[in-house]
């Protein structure tokens, strides 16, 4: 490959130079205007509307990747951190009702109330995985509980898990998440009542929290009060503050 050389008269050189520079400055100007335009757009749930649209498109692109076969990497027990990081107090600041029961709203509208003891009777699953926070830190931690899919099967929620989303809310409604069903019924998603083989501490969401390794930490709601099912996106605490709704890993 060689570099082309030509003989041009000065006028042509000058005209081409002017044309190129005009196009250059116009395009840079347009890029600047685009940036200004972007930041002048209204927000949709805390994110600039065009960016929110892209996040929703990204979800459509990456959701089909979620597969029951794609398991999050697990670690041996001794790798689990003893000092588990506590992050986020929304929804667990109010005193816990001593008569706590998990409320599940069925598709038909009737509700069932389930005690912690009943949940503990279901087959227990332990998982040691790398917990990832949206902030950027991660920690290998050990949790125990019942698989959400097994819980749903036991309580005959078969019709419910055919729906698109599951929503979870703390008893004081101070924190809430929405989760797409493929992620909720993923074999590593558990309703968790143990950490490091002991009862879940209050600041980690006693009596029952969600552990969903295919999502960032913000989706691992602590102190679940009620669970419901929906074909539209349930409200989500951080998705209202400009974060992506899907947040799938």
């Amino acid at each position: 490959m060689t570099i082309k050389e030509q003989i041009w008269n000065t006028k042509k050189v000058r005209n081409r130079t002017i044309l190129s520079f005009v196009v250059f400055f116009v395009m840079m100007g347009l890029a600047y205007c685009f940036w200004k335009w972007l930041y002048a757009q209204p927000e949709e749930h805390g994110a600039l509307k065009p960016l929110r649209k892209v996040l929703i498109q990204n979800e459509k692109i990456f959701k089909p990747l979620v597969s029951q076969e794609h398991l999050v990497k697990t670690y041996p027990l001794q790798k689990a951190e003893k000092k588990v990081r506590v992050n986020g107090w929304d929804g667990i600041e109010t005193p816990l009702d001593a008569n706590w029961k998990l409320k599940v709203v069925r598709k038909t509208g009737d509700t069932i109330f389930i005690t912690l003891d009943d949940i503990k009777k279901l087959p227990k699953t332990d998982i040691v995985f790398d917990f990832k926070c949206v902030e950027g830190w991660n920690q290998i931690t050990h949790w125990g509980g019942v698989k959400f899919s097994e819980f749903a099967k036991y309580y005959e929620l078969d019709n419910e898990i055919q729906m698109e989303y599951v929503g979870m809310i703390t008893p004081d409604k101070g924190y809430y998440v929405g989760i797409d069903m493929p992620s909720a019924v993923h074999p590593q998603t558990i309703l968790c009542y143990e950490m490091n083989g002991k009862v879940l501490p209050l600041n980690q969401g006693y009596p029952l929290r969600l552990i969903i390794p295919v999502k960032y930490g913000v989706k691992h709601i602590k102190r679940i009060g009620s669970i419901f099912f929906s074909n539209t996106k349930p409200p989500d605490f951080w998705a209202e503050e400009g974060y992506d709704y899907f947040l799938g890993l």
């Binding site: 570099i3 003989i7 041009w8």
Partner: peptide, 10 residues
């Protein structure tokens, strides 16, 4: 008119 050698670089 004056001419110039033009080297097409990019």
């Amino acid at each position: 008119m004056e001419n110039k050698k033009v080297i097409h670089k990019h």
